[in-house]
Design a protein around this nucleic acid. Structure first.
Lengths: 229, 229
DNA sequence: ATCCGATTCAAACAGTTGTTTTAAACTATC
DNA sequence: GATAGTTTAAAACAACTGTTTGAATCGGAT
């Protein structure tokens, strides 16, 4: 035991690092299920069929494994998605964006890794939050700001654009964050991928209708003070 | 030490149970901050200026304290609020409902207890989830179903009503669940109570516009199959 | 076959957790 | 004021955590 890895060590002989890969996939499972803090290296090692010391040997410590886990899944293609969506009319761009995000959540019984990790990070933030934020959230928000800006004819950075973007992302995130709650309130609601597709289209319809009204109303009566009583 | 409380024991001599109350308020703080699992009885007892054994003596075990904590805050006046909303026109009822929920979240620096506990429960559910669900969530969802049903002229139990309700609750919940994320993306966005009031009114405007379109569109073309491409 | 570094393993370590124990302090009643 | 029941307090317990240790094992170059 001489070089217990803190320097990341490129490792191009990737054919022969089964333990690392097994640890990574097991870790992704466990971190997604219970979050960083509640995850135990013993559980991870058990699933990966590795010794308890393997995590510290290969990744330095528990958080090193977590960070590697977050890094590894970053094979997203924002530019392509951006270009692709830019070619569509804004209305259809919004709809396909929503449908695509929903699809990336995975099915009801097998939600995607980032989806679950983000929930844990939001409830009990660790150092990993900013990584997920930079790599997954921020780019998508920028795409949405652009689309919504076109739809309501306001700049992407306008406060009203931001509110509308959050109205959309809020609707989407709800089916991730509160899935347990929804299933508990409406037990017959299965939320399989077909259902989620219907939900995605509902959100698109709902938001397109709202955005059209925003476009119409917001331009002139920008500063309407409303009493909340 | 003879009767270490598992039978709840009404305790009407409430003037003299400082330790219990101090434990409960300290526990609410800690549970809200880090969730049930990550909370430690030592931290709770330290804040309550009580001995470590106090939790087990007064509440049986850690979860007994948690359950009592959840039970105790249920002195809400939902019924009154419900009756009050029924007297308003549906549009204004929706707006005041949203504003009121936002207000119950507390200000930015001091979010309400249930709000934070629910986040932790959703990310890492414990036995306490169903309690919060029954006492806080379900009643409010029913109120919303009624209002939205009136607005889109569909029964409260209709699937489309459900989707619209979730579109509204999703927008609201987003400012709770993802507050850390929002503050990180738009650091200048302070989200004080004035901001939140503006957000609440935006959500009302946004949703009223969408619901009007739903009412218009949904009645005739109920089963429109849409290709997602 | 031999050697040396890299890897694996069982065991142990140090710290934290919820809970229990045991005795002391308190409180109200006779 | 003595006494029985209730409450507090310090300490210890057992289980679990991430991490380290040091020896055993492996795999390829000599």
């Amino acid at each position: 035991m001489r070089k217990p890895a803190n320097t990341v060590e490129l490792k191009i002989d990737s054919g022969r690092d089964q333990p690392r890969q097994k640890l990574l996939t097991a870790a992704r499972q466990v971190f997604a299920e219970v979050g960083f803090r509640a995850a135990t290296v013993r559980e991870i090692c058990a699933r990966a069929e590795q010794n308890v010391a393997a995590v510290n040997y290969h990744f330095g410590d528990k958080f090193g494994l977590y960070a590697e886990t977050l890094k590894h899944e970053t094979v997203f293609n924002e530019e392509m998605a951006d270009r692709e969506l830019g070619a569509l009319a804004p209305k259809e761009a919004l709809r396909t964006f929503i449908v695509r995000v929903f699809r990336s959540f995975g099915s009801a019984d097998r939600p995607a890794f980032y989806t679950q990790v983000m929930m844990h990070e939001l409830a009990a933030p660790s150092e990993g939050l900013s990584a997920v934020l930079d790599q997954v959230i921020r780019p998508r928000v920028q795409v949405l700001e652009k689309i919504v800006g076109l739809l309501i004819e306001l700049p992407p950075a306008h406060p009203k654009t931001r509110l509308c973007v959050l109205s959309i992302t809020g609707q989407i995130a709800h089916y991730v964050n509160s899935r347990a709650l929804i299933s508990s309130i409406w037990p017959e609601w299965k939320l399989n991928s077909e259902d989620l597709n219907e939900v995605a289209n509902h959100i698109a319809d709902y938001s397109l209708a709202a955005l059209q009204t925003v476009k119409r109303d917001f331009s002139q009566a920008a500063s309407r003070t409303r009493k909340t009583r």
